[in-house]
Design a protein around this nucleic acid. Structure first.
Lengths: 216, 216
DNA sequence: TGTACATCAGTGAACGCGCGTTCACTGATGTAC
DNA sequence: TGTACATCAGTGAACGCGCGTTCACTGATGTAC
């Protein structure tokens, strides 16, 4: 959860936008939008995707409860903004994972490991993208993210089998396995070994290989 | 969600306990405990595991908001009671699935399919057992359920590999895959085919076989 | 069989709480002249 | 360089809401005599 800040701020933190003069700590907060998003991520990391409240985020950011409405239309808009960041980060990570090899089986194994890693290292973002209960019809930009992921992975799976249905089936099974492993790791069902993230990444990769190489 | 009622009532619904005289519809509800549990299941099925409120369950059962406290210590106690039912039903289903064959690989494949099926057919119970956010230290009887499942499955996995670590690893990977597939099916990511439950059961079973038969 | 009584599952009103959202406002900022 | 002004990110008080929980109570039930 400490790491999540780096992602959130990477775009428009004051430090990386030197043309903007540093605002003195007067009445204006200066970067309240980011401060609220960070507070929200910390809340989700601590309490789960339904543990976020606007009021508590305001308390942590040190502003009044009315302040967020200068930056977000409502509570859901803040959540949707974070979900977008989550999808963006997923895309970065999965693209990188997939480009680590030319062997499609290893590409999918890398994807599976990266999936587990993202869920663990950016737990709050992961939780928001999967179970914040956002109304996707009100935030259609979010619904597109799944299709983008499919567009990246389907060509890879198609190199393993030319049957499109079988290729899709392959992806679904690999992604599901990674998803389940990530959740089990989150819930601590696997035991709290110090190295349980690497072990779980390896399990995800091995399961992906097993699925790809299955004979029948 | 309509099905869930049959499970909930199977124990002490008035119809199956003829020695107790039917209470006339007077001031006493008669079977409020079950009515509240049914209402809670319906709420969870409709709104997710965090959508349950005692007040709404009371409204649906047609009683005042104070009535539940004659049957449950508090809100969490009702949820914990349902979680127990969920674990009991899981045990029944998984035991039956596992006894359908003598081949350990097929036993695990059947377990994986049964896992997906339970999550779909008893969605509310499944959601409660996995993400109701119950404090397990306050409800220790719930924490034991996972170990009971492990006790059933570990001997089977041990017939595939004598290495206990490898056997545990096998189980974790198979259960995770089934879990992930069940969640993807719930979320409608797989498309809303009429036969998506059977298709997902088959995917779970095939993934289990792939994991069991993996060479490396 | 009839009556007195203890039990106890329900009521309904009230409580304090935290939530999301709205509103008129304030005062520091940066800009035009 | 100095002054008047528009902008706009913040305040703080208030709102209505639904929640979980408590409380004294009521009245139907089943039982003891």
């Amino acid at each position: 959860m400490a790491e999540s800040g780096s992602l959130v701020n990477s775009v428009n933190l004051t430090a990386v936008t030197p043309p903007v003069k540093r605002r003195p700590s007067g009445q204006h907060h200066g970067d309240l939008r980011n401060a609220l998003e960070e507070a929200a991520l910390a809340l989700v990391a601590e309490r789960g995707p339904h543990g976020f409240t606007l009021a508590e985020a305001c308390r942590r950011a040190g502003v009044s409860v009315a302040a967020p409405y200068k930056h977000f239309a409502d509570r859901d808009a803040l959540l949707a903004s974070l979900a977008e960041k989550g999808y963006r980060e997923q895309h970065l990570r999965f693209s990188a994972a997939v480009s680590s090899s030319d062997d499609p089986a290893e590409q999918l194994a890398s994807f599976a490991a990266a999936y587990v890693r993202f869920a663990t290292e950016e737990r709050a973002l992961f939780d928001i993208t999967f179970s914040a209960g956002l109304d996707k019809s009100r935030h259609p930009e979010l619904a597109a993210a799944g299709n983008a992921l499919l567009g990246t992975l389907l060509p890879i799976a198609s190199r393993i089998t030319s049957d499109q249905t079988a290729a899709f089936d392959l992806l679904v099974r690999i992604a599901s396995a990674a998803h389940g492993l990530a959740l089990f790791l989150q819930q601590g069902i696997l035991g709290a070994d110090q190295d349980s993230l690497p072990a779980t990444e390896e399990r995800a990769a091995r399961t992906a290989r097993a699925i790809v190489h299955q004979k029948s």
